[in-house]
């Protein structure tokens, strides 16, 4: 019986091994990473991710869509801050530079939410 279905067995086994290898490749590239990433949610609820691990120690400025006015945000190696916002209380600016995961910078006035995440600690949330 084995001889009769030998080629089928070899074929199916090969396909299963290929599938397994494909899964391993997929999860390796999309699984855990040690990069610190900034998730920036703008006033349109569009999320932009910036890999802060790849930033240099020299801060560069980016613009984020705000509800009333765009925010100026500074990004550098594993750190981020709001440089300018038109909000009246300036809480987001006063927060200063954040380099801790899951400690959000929030501008309620302009509806911008910035949070750092990292797959190094694997936490879903930090309180």
């Amino acid at each position: 019986m084995f001889k009769k279905y030998k080629r089928d067995i070899i074929l199916i086994s090969s396909l299963l091994i290929i599938s397994l290898l494909a899964c391993l490749v997929y999860f390796n590239f999309n699984g855990s990473s040690t990069n610190l990433v900034a998730n920036i949610t703008d006033s349109n609820n569009v999320v932009t991710q910036i890999d802060l691990e790849k930033e240099t120690d020299t801060e560069r400025e980016i613009t984020v869509d705000g509800l009333h006015e765009d925010l100026k945000v500074g990004v550098k190696h594993n750190a981020i801050r709001v440089i300018y916002s038109s909000c009246p209380h300036q809480d987001c600016v006063k927060m200063g530079t954040v380099s801790i995961t899951n400690k959000p910078i929030v501008c309620l006035y302009n509806k911008v939410y910035i949070v750092l995440i990292s797959n190094a600690d694997g936490n879903d949330i930090n309180i």
Binding site: T101, N102, D121, G122, N123, D124, I125, N126, I127
Partner: peptide, 8 residues
């Protein structure tokens, strides 16, 4: 699964 909750 469980969520992982980090404490700052």
């Amino acid at each position: 699964e469980d969520f992982k909750i980090g404490i700052n």
